[in-house]
Write a protein that binds this DNA or RNA. Sequence first.
DNA 1: CTTTAGCACTCTTAGCTTGTGAGTGCTAAT
DNA 2: ATTAGCACTCACAAGCTAAGAGTGCTAAAG
Lengths: 339, 339
Amino acid sequence: MALDERKAQILKAVVEDYVKTGLPVGSRAVARKYRLGVSPATIRNEMADLEEMGYLDKPHTSSGRIPSDRGYRFYVDELMTDVRLSREESAMIESLFRSKIRDVVSLLKATVKALSEATDYLAFVLGPEYVTTTFEAVYLLPASVGRALLVIVSDVGVVENCIIDVPPMSREEMEYVSNMLRRHLCHVSLDQVHTKAQELLSRETSRYSEVIAQVAEYLMSITEESETEQLFMGGTANLLNQPEFRDVNRVQDLLEAIENGSLIRNIMITQTHTTDPAITIGEENEVEKVKEFSIVYGTFRLGQSAGRIGLLGPKRMNYPRAVAIIRYCEQMLNKYLVR
Amino acid sequence: MALDERKAQILKAVVEDYVKTGLPVGSRAVARKYRLGVSPATIRNEMADLEEMGYLDKPHTSSGRIPSDRGYRFYVDELMTDVRLSREESAMIESLFRSKIRDVVSLLKATVKALSEATDYLAFVLGPEYVTTTFEAVYLLPASVGRALLVIVSDVGVVENCIIDVPPMSREEMEYVSNMLRRHLCHVSLDQVHTKAQELLSRETSRYSEVIAQVAEYLMSITEESETEQLFMGGTANLLNQPEFRDVNRVQDLLEAIENGSLIRNIMITQTHTTDPAITIGEENEVEKVKEFSIVYGTFRLGQSAGRIGLLGPKRMNYPRAVAIIRYCEQMLNKYLVR
DNA sequence: CTTTAGCACTCTTAGCTTGTGAGTGCTAAT
DNA sequence: ATTAGCACTCACAAGCTAAGAGTGCTAAAG
């Protein structure tokens, strides 16, 4: 399966030229731009071989070659060389991060912004799952008559809140309930919240039982809920820059699926990643609608759980650059998310 | 400026037909579909009059008429009849709301979703400005060594949080600081937060002064910050459904501007609204990039401040329906946001 | 005096034809 | 093994034509 040196060089040239121009690349162009010391005719022969081996495709009988999924895969695995972001660029990105060190959510939003502005692709950040989390704090605050604001701080610093109905009670009473909730439901692993709440309910047969039940339910619901909420995306307009989207219908379908959010989540769930900035190319993607695209994604840690950041673009993607940017943003996140 | 009955009927027919089909409408079509008891020739004459008066345009010398901005305006002001949402539809929307009565932010997100799914337009919700707001609660919670989580609850129930650096301190110390902050900075109008914080600083020359300063700064920053954060959008893919976007470049430009968010904010700031679901059509929009579109937007109240919900679509928009949906969502919001 | 039928004219759009250019595969010479 | 040469393929753009929808005007009819 190994390619001899010259074939490898030609494959590399084809991929990089096609990535740059978006046009099928011919033997002439390869000979001219990437001087390999051989004539177009020789390159033609080699390209015919590469096609037979499945690394290149032809859009139609005559006229240049484009890389196949396999060609991209070989390029990504063996041929591409790491690139470094320019000084200005990394400075630009870092400054964006620095200005947003407020809370986790803003930081993730900043990441999306950095990614989508630094590339021509769709950027996404999938917040960490809650599964392994406990709660750091639970507060019940008076909101208006008959309503209270429930504020919850997870151990990774993500804050959630909701409004619940409560029987009318004094400030002191509410503080009492609030303290009780804190004592019994904080620092308890999620799978035990339910039983703890039941315990609490059976002991407290007071008028607060309704409140306790509501809080417990909300705590439980957060597990799934927040998964649907914690997806940030940006740069949808970037996709329209790609020449492959000259016709609107193709993009529309994808956009719809992306916007609703389930798509990215599906991808991240079904995908089994291996290397750090993982790359999936075209048909390698499990999800149907993405089989014409590539995804480059990485991981960041927050507490005990992990989140994902990624770029979705055409297969004709600048992989070295995408990898460099994902790597850099991973670093930034892990740096600013320390806790 | 008033139009005689027949002209009005014809204008109405042209607008509604054009809205439905997207194709310039000719005299024949009007005569056939909206039986007005006159022949195409008569309608041709009337349409020529309407064109001269500025209510209709011709894309090119021969071939049907399309409404001008003025034509749409007249239609919207005088001709269109209110529509009601179907029972299923309003039930669908309300259920979406009901399932999301958790916190303000989820509710606003649900609104965007409802709006964009119920229409073919871009939906947006602009959260209420903070200007007139005070803070209901301020908490400083231990996060990790040297860091604390600052949680702030505004009087309208919006929760903000950020992480700040603090000198190492015990749980009791932090509670002391937290209480101090609460006593001095809650229920204080925003324009006084700064002076209050100064007072506090001058009295407390302790090691906590750094913390107090940070908190004060954050409180101040929220005013602008949250304006940039509190914009929710959905349904960008809807725009691609519109036949006017058969070519990609037009939409890309708009999408980019929209995604970055400043566009909608600008519109809402520059626009002076009058009626409740306000409608601005084409050139009536102050913002350059929107002069080819129309916006229908309404207001909801949250505490002392107000937010906006709206739809952005082509001038060829189904105005009666857009108005009905905006109205309905306004109601929903005002119902579920009571405090 | 308003309405209508008839007709010549305009303009867009889709489909077809043609020419050009980029690129290929094959063969024969180096 | 490499390369030059050449015939061949195919996409794409440009130009052309025919069809169709719609108009404005004129003259007849109510």
